[in-house]
Amino acid sequence: MRVLTAVIAIAVGLMVLLGYFFAEFVGIQTLLLNWAVILAGVASLVGIFNLIAVHTDKVRRAEKGGVYSALLVIALVATFVFGLILQPQHQIMQVLLNGIILPVEATLMGLLTITLLYAAIRLLRRRADVMSVFFIITAVLIFLGSATLPTGDVPVIGTLIRPWVSQIWALGGARGILIGVALGTLVTGLRVLFGIDRPYGGK
């Protein structure tokens, strides 16, 4: 069974890959990718069941934070049922989305701003080295250079230093890091394609 799953995965992976280089494989590539999208949709349902299983288990065991778990399960089931009955485009469902889900995510984004500011303040205490000093100086310069003032850009910092730092130093560094990440992704992808790494089939 394990060999069969590996053979199927490798064959499918190769056909999808060949579709990028040879026109003869484009049809089968599209078909397989469409199947993958459908399977990803089914996986979403499995993921939601997993979420329900974890949180109902917490409620049953009366674990710490069990109240939140109960609230999550109730909200999840209610949203699912209402979504099925009313359809996602219905006004009530839109109110749920725009009135609860989006503001909660926006709040977390707002919290993140404070969290990052706090992390930057604590950085030198955590790791007092040259790179940390550069990190903070760069962040402050970019921050000041991007600030919108009634009088316009901050002189020199906004017009000269920020573009110089962000478009030359930062862009060069970012490209270097992204090349490294791309090479890592390429080699990792090949390991999975060859069946060396098999995060499927229970082995």
């Binding site: 399977l39 990803a40 996986a43 979403s44 349902l45 499995v46 993921g47 939601i48 997993n50 995060p199 499927y200 089939g201 229970g202």
Partner: peptide, 11 residues
């Protein structure tokens, strides 16, 4: 990600 979640269980 749900698909990643499935592979996490398997792994």
């Amino acid at each position: 990600d749900p698909a990643l979640g499935l592979l996490t269980q398997d792994t």
